[in-house]
Design a protein around this nucleic acid. Structure first.
Length: 309
DNA sequence: ATCCAGGTCGGTC
DNA sequence: GACCGACATGGA
């Protein structure tokens, strides 16, 4: 009913930022695995070359590099302030405080040990929503390909270090595209969903900004009104874009993990799994989910023999 | 070649 | 409500 607003100290810590120029800062971080975080299936727009991650965040081209307890941030344009990137990276979050809230069972602890430094980002709602509408029954690699095609064909050019990069297209821009143009981006049967969602957002029928002020259940209800958005995608957006800490996306990986290691939920359907997880994994269940998800993916088929699938 | 991928939708029973 | 096939595309 009400908003979950427990004031965890992890949400109140300060980010320590060293300003090096109007285009470069170094953010002090503790337990932050940048590569794992940017490539853990929560965001699909980052490009990796030689230890450098480049992308566009809130309309600004940015380069990120991990360097011993620091994240080096470089932009192409002068910046007055940097909260757009510290907020995105959630560098103020104290990971220890979150991990302490996880249940001390074997599966959870194995995931924590295996994925040290994995973080949740705080993405822009529209890009996150659109990306996950594209995600259904697609591999992460393919989702990235479609996102890249959308940027190239519909994005806005943004100056980068040596030329122009393309942003993720706005809902307004996609709303004026045709289904055929969308299908040319290899999104297949998801094209009409993304197109209708773009028109709903662009036309103000769905106000993504207003969801910040709702309870998690109210916000989920709004997202579920959008075409192509079911419980799983809604929870991804609630967790990765709005930061609702108990949102718990149940996909095929998580369903397998939960059923294997938490036998009390073996007969549960997806909704019941989500409800079980929300109470069992505690106030940061969504974070726990990302650890379990990433750990399972790292192990690929190793923990699941074919007969168990 | 065959199965499956960070699911959802619209039909059935 | 719950079960089930269709839906594009391309990795593995």
């Amino acid at each position: 009913m009400g908003v979950s607003s427990t004031p965890f100290k992890s949400l109140n810590a300060e980010t320590c930022v060293e300003l090096r120029s109007t285009r470069e800062i170094a953010i002090s971080v503790c337990e932050y695995d940048l590569a794992t975080t940017l490539d853990s299936g929560q965001a699909f727009g980052w490009q990796h070359h030689d230890g450098e991650w480049t992308g566009i965040v809130h309309g600004r081209w940015v380069s990120l590099k991990a360097s011993q307890n620091r994240i080096l941030v470089r932009t192409a344009a002068n910046q007055r302030e940097w909260s757009w990137i510290t907020g995105y990276l959630q560098t103020h979050v104290c990971l220890r405080d979150i991990i302490e809230t996880f249940p001390p069972d074997v599966a959870m602890q194995a995931a924590v040990t295996s994925c040290r430094g994995l973080r949740l980002l705080r993405q822009e709602p529209w890009e996150c929503l659109a990306s996950f509408i594209l995600s259904s029954t697609k591999q992460i690699k393919q989702i990235k390909q479609v996102v890249q095609l959308l940027k190239e064909r519909f994005g806005e050019p943004i100056p980068n270090a040596s030329g122009l990069a393309m942003s993720f297209p706005s809902a307004q821009r996609l709303a004026s595209a045709t289904e055929s143009e969308m299908r040319d981006c290899k999104m297949g049967f998801r094209a009409p969903y993304l197109l209708a969602a773009a028109r709903s957002v662009a036309g103000g029928i769905c106000d993504l900004e207003s969801l910040h002020h709702l309870s998690v259940n109210e916000a989920r209800g709004e997202l579920l009104k959008l075409p192509g958005v079911g419980p799983k995608i809604a929870d991804c957006v609630l967790l990765f874009a709005y930061g609702f800490p108990t949102a718990f996306p149940v996909d095929v990986w998580i369903a397998k993990v939960i059923r294997k290691y938490y036998p009390e939920s073996r007969r549960a359907n997806a909704r019941e799994l989500r409800e079980f997880a929300g109470s069992y994994f505690g106030p940061h269940a969504g974070y726990a989910q990302q650890y379990l998800f990433h750990h399972a993916r790292k192990l690929e088929g190793k923990i699941f023999s074919p007969s168990e699938a």
